Amino acid sequence: MISETDVKNYLNEGLRCIGCGAEIQTDQPSELGYTPLSALKKGFENDEVLCQRCFRLRHYNEIQPVDLTDDDFRRLLDQISTTDALVVYVMDVFDFSGSLIPGLHRFVGSNPVLLVGNKVDILPHALRRAKIKEWMRQQANRAGLRPIDIALTSGKNGDDVPALLDLIEKHRARRSVYVVGVTNVGKSTLINQIIKDVTGDKKDVITTSRFPGTTLDRIEIALDDQSNIIDTPGIIHKDQMAHYLSPKDLKYVSPQKELKPRTYQLNAEQTLFMGAMARFDYVQGAKTGITAYFENNLPIHRTKLDKADLFYEKHAGELLAPPEKENLVNLPPLKRYEFKTTEKTDIVIDGLGWITVPGQVVVAAWAPKGVSVLTRKAMI
């Protein structure tokens, strides 16, 4: 049995939480890395050294807020440009635009980038992987990225992890590997799958959840005597839908199963509501089919455009949910964005999903003020 003196000695050496990377401390309950000394002793005995935040997140699915800003996270990544390493950039194929890191070149420097499209199991099974990769390459090039290779993975089931590891070994040339990404792209889940594949240990090491910003500091896992795979904190995008929802409602923006596209035959001046979180207006065009790609359990309601404002005012938080009425107060008012399309186009609401429309139409999308809405060449 480990003694209290032994525990204090480990603390003096800079002990870190295996879940989020924060340095463990036992004196300041409101600060990062806090855990009671008694809990820390028990953690050593159970081979699970976690800060109190990670312990409660892992065992009770409770999140405690942290006093870190976006700039704090960026400072932790600044060191990458000064090292010789392979950068594995993990993106969520369901939320590609929301996965982009502004100014990534500043963090990467001259290091090569391996682009990983995670959560590929969510996309419709009939969509060919070669097409997804080519679409990702085009989107990355538009954002100024020139990846040396592209991989598709599912951090959830781990089926593609061996192939990803082969690509990492091919490109890293015995260098360390930095894994970067915004919050909620499944980065830590993917690294847990890598650890399981390499070690054969089926237990998760790194804390994962639907909550944004789970990893708080860099976490290092040895690849060999000279190099490590390093999980970095997720860059927080405040324009993602997840930041405006309660824990109960996050399940509606984080698909766990293959998407089932929903197609609606719409006439001009008809409206769709995605719960109370978003709205789509078919403003002008011939009768046509539009296809919605959202979490399968997210309710979608149709109404007439001229009655949409009153419909929302009357039913938001009840018939139009999520969020429920008690959580609606935390959702900013919906803001309107109008688009004229000339080809098959996705209207994307960051972190929620997208609607595919044909060419030659006028449409409008509404999302909570602060959540990005944009268009892109249709993925599917």
Results as ranks from 00 to 15, higher is better:
1 M>K: 12
6 D>E: 15
14 G>S: 07
14 G>H: 05
18 I>E: 07
23 E>L: 03
48 E>C: 12
48 E>P: 04
51 C>I: 06
53 R>A: 04
63 I>C: 08
64 Q>G: 07
69 T>D: 12
70 D>M: 08
72 D>T: 00
74 R>Y: 13
77 L>Y: 07
79 Q>G: 10
80 I>T: 03
81 S>Q: 12
84 D>F: 03
84 D>T: 07
88 V>L: 12
91 M>A: 09
98 G>S: 06
103 G>Y: 04
106 R>T: 11
106 R>Q: 10
118 N>H: 04
120 V>E: 09
126 A>M: 07
126 A>S: 11
133 K>L: 14
136 M>Q: 08
144 G>V: 00
146 R>S: 13
153 T>M: 04
158 G>R: 06
160 D>N: 05
160 D>K: 05
162 P>M: 11
169 E>I: 04
171 H>P: 10
174 R>D: 15
177 V>C: 00
181 G>M: 03
189 T>S: 14
197 D>L: 02
197 D>Y: 04
198 V>Q: 12
199 T>A: 10
200 G>K: 06
201 D>L: 12
204 D>K: 03
206 I>P: 01
207 T>Q: 02
207 T>S: 15
208 T>Q: 12
212 P>L: 02
218 R>L: 15
218 R>V: 07
223 L>P: 00
225 D>W: 05
231 D>H: 00
236 I>N: 12
239 D>L: 01
259 L>Q: 12
261 P>C: 08
271 T>F: 10
272 L>A: 08
273 F>W: 15
276 A>H: 08
277 M>T: 08
281 D>N: 15
286 A>R: 10
292 A>Q: 03
297 N>L: 14
300 I>N: 12
305 L>F: 06
308 A>V: 05
317 G>T: 07
325 K>T: 09
328 L>N: 04
328 L>R: 02
332 P>M: 01
334 L>T: 07
334 L>A: 14
336 R>E: 15
338 E>I: 15
341 T>N: 06
356 T>A: 09
362 V>I: 13
368 P>A: 10
373 V>P: 01
377 K>Q: 14
